[in-house]
Design a protein around this nucleic acid. Structure first.
Length: 237
DNA sequence: AGGTCGACCTGGCAGC
DNA sequence: TGCTGCCAGGTCGACC
């Protein structure tokens, strides 16, 4: 409940900000963790002075910090959640989460082993958080465009060379996106209120009917597992 | 066990 | 202008 949450968080120190999958993990002193899963429209805003940061209709939680600083959690759709836990294993989201794609243990062989057991189309498999943690709907389409793989292909149909390219592109695409500070399709802002710049680097996502930046084919939109997928049917095979 | 689908919300926008 | 329906960075639980 909000009351129990506040009781646990009050008078703790936010010690370390980390991340697992798409969830923010903040370790607290003397104990416990604050977990934030922002989902579609959630984000954190930081104000050095509370009076500098406006509370809007999207502001769902306000953390008052020392020296009059403040941290807001904004989320206009309210899909996101905030938890206090003492053991990370208690969070259901973490229990079935696959490897971190930018960590050393995410190898080509590990990806191959995961894909060989999946019957679904490769786009759907890339978005399965149990296979790889953190790939969302924008990045799944962008990665498959980058490696010229048709999103409708079964994961099991990928050849060894394609899996190797896919593995490299997962890492490359996510690194570029992080460097650009993410994708502000609409709501997302970083903690200082700035938009992420990855939207300017997007090749296919949300570009149905426009021309392919690589081959002058026409980008198409299909629906897979209830999510939009964008691809170029001419150069992704 | 893996896969699919509706539910959870608000708001912007296209089409009529 | 104003209504309706559709769509959006994601899980999660029920069901097959």
């Amino acid at each position: 409940t909000p009351e129990a949450f506040i009781k646990k968080i009050r008078n703790t120190t936010l010690e370390h900000f980390g991340r697992r999958g798409k969830a923010i993990v903040i370790s607290l002193k003397p104990k416990g963790y604050l977990i934030i899963q922002p989902k579609m429209s959630g984000y954190l805003m930081f104000g050095k002075k509370a009076s500098n940061l406006e509370i809007t209709s999207a502001t769902k939680a306000v953390f008052r910090l020392s020296n009059d600083a403040v941290l807001h959690y904004n989320d206009h759709r309210m899909f996101g959640w905030l938890y206090y836990v003492e053991d990370l294993k208690a969070v259901k989201y973490f229990q079935n989460l696959g490897p971190e794609p930018l960590e050393k243990n995410f190898t080509v062989d590990l990806l191959k082993a995961s894909l060989s057991r999946r019957v679904s189309p490769i786009k759907v498999v890339l978005m399965n958080q149990a296979v790889v943690a953190g790939i969302g709907n924008i990045y799944a389409s962008e990665i498959l465009f980058d490696v010229k793989i048709d999103p409708r292909r079964k994961a099991t149909s990928l050849k060894a060379a394609e899996m190797k390219k896919l593995h490299a592109s997962i890492q490359k695409t996510l690194r570029v996106a992080i460097e650009a500070r993410g994708s502000s399709l609409r709501d997302y802002r970083d903690t200082s209120g700035q938009k992420g710049n990855f939207v300017q680097l997007i090749k296919v996502y949300n570009r149905a009917g426009k021309s392919c930046p690589r081959c002058k084919g026409v980008i198409q939109k299909i629906v897979q597992a209830q999510r939009s997928t964008f691809s170029c049917p001419h150069c992704q095979t």
